[in-house]
């Protein structure tokens, strides 16, 4: 019984982990159809800000939940204004430019902070379920994944801003005709997506430590989740995370984390062969 509970919790943690990693990217992709190839480095930046500010005396929760999202969000807006804005309608070029940005960020952070791992200890202890013990921090991850999804849903569904965003998503030309400044919507979207990514980076910093090249360990999972999910921000992220998280966690249990990643990719490839626009390209088409 305890074992089943542990397995279920681990599955839930794996799914939440994917949601957390991918949601910032999914927000940007859902709105603008642009994949931010520097996503991993945005995570890295969030992690660095968390750890650097914390080491300088800021309480961990403030640096993790406020400073990291804020800084990465502002950085995202800067990137949008300086780079992405010039490349709307040239999707391939925006991929290439963000990839260049990703390399630039790895190099830049290496120059500033050096190529060493830095970290803080994971907050909270562990809780024991029967004879097993699991870190309490897992529940933080699950909680934040749920909170991000809920918040995105609520904003899109119930607020004026969400209405404008949904209109721009459905038909940018029509939205523009009706007086929506779509360029501002895009800018805000990129900023919010980046902020969510920064938050994710902050949350994973205590788990993994930070190093300039850490992004590479997470981008694979994030990209696969987003493209498997398809264009709908919430339904796509949730369905893809659930499917892929379960698969990869299952394989990880059986044979180790490296093969878990490979299984993730294989599943996604087979799925995309059948549903080339991702899950929400055909199923849950009208959902958010």
């Amino acid at each position: 019984m305890d074992y089943v509970l542990i397995i279920l919790l681990e599955m839930l943690r794996a799914v939440s982990w994917l949601v957390l990693l991918a949601s910032g990217l999914a927000i940007i992709f859902g709105m603008m159809r642009v994949i931010n190839f520097a996503h991993g480095e945005f995570l890295m930046l969030g992690g660095y800000i968390t750890i650097m500010t914390h080491n300088n005396g800021v309480p961990l929760w403030i640096s993790m939940l406020i400073l990291a999202p804020l800084t990465v969000g502002i950085f995202g807006i800067l990137v949008e204004r300086l780079v992405i804005r010039h490349l709307y309608g040239r999707i391939i070029d925006s991929l290439l430019a963000t990839w260049g940005l990703s390399l630039l960020m790895i190099g830049g952070v290496t120059l500033v902070f050096g190529n060493t791992v830095q970290g803080v200890s994971t907050p909270f202890g562990a809780v024991s379920i029967g004879e097993y013990s699991i870190p309490l921090y897992n529940f933080v991850i699950i909680g934040f994944a749920a909170a991000i999804m809920l918040a995105t849903w609520a904003v899109l569904k119930f607020t004026k801003v969400g209405l404008v965003a949904r209109a721009t998503m459905q038909n940018p030309d029509m939205a523009e005709t009706l007086g929506v400044r779509t360029t501002w919507v895009y800018m805000a979207t990129f900023g919010i997506g980046s902020a969510v990514t920064g938050l994710a980076g902050g949350l994973l910093a205590p788990l993994t430590g930070v190093v300039p090249s850490m992004g590479v360990n997470f981008v694979g999972q994030s990209f696969i989740t987003v493209i498997t999910g398809g264009a709908s921000m919430i339904a796509g992220t949730l369905s893809a995370s659930t499917l892929l998280g379960t698969v990869s966690q299952g394989v990880t249990f059986a044979s180790g984390p490296v093969y878990g990643d490979a299984a993730l990719l294989l599943t996604a490839l087979v799925l995309l062969r059948v549903l080339p626009q991702g899950i929400t390209g055909r199923i849950f088409k009208k959902s958010l």
């Binding site: 190839f37 391939i92 996604a268």
Partner: peptide, 24 residues
């Protein structure tokens, strides 16, 4: 190509394949 993936998807899939090789 038989899945008729779009350009963005193509880019992401080829990149992730490389990543997985690197990790393996």
């Amino acid at each position: 190509f038989y899945g008729r993936l779009s350009e963005v998807y193509l880019g992401v899939v080829t990149m992730v394949v490389t990543l997985i090789f690197w990790k393996l």
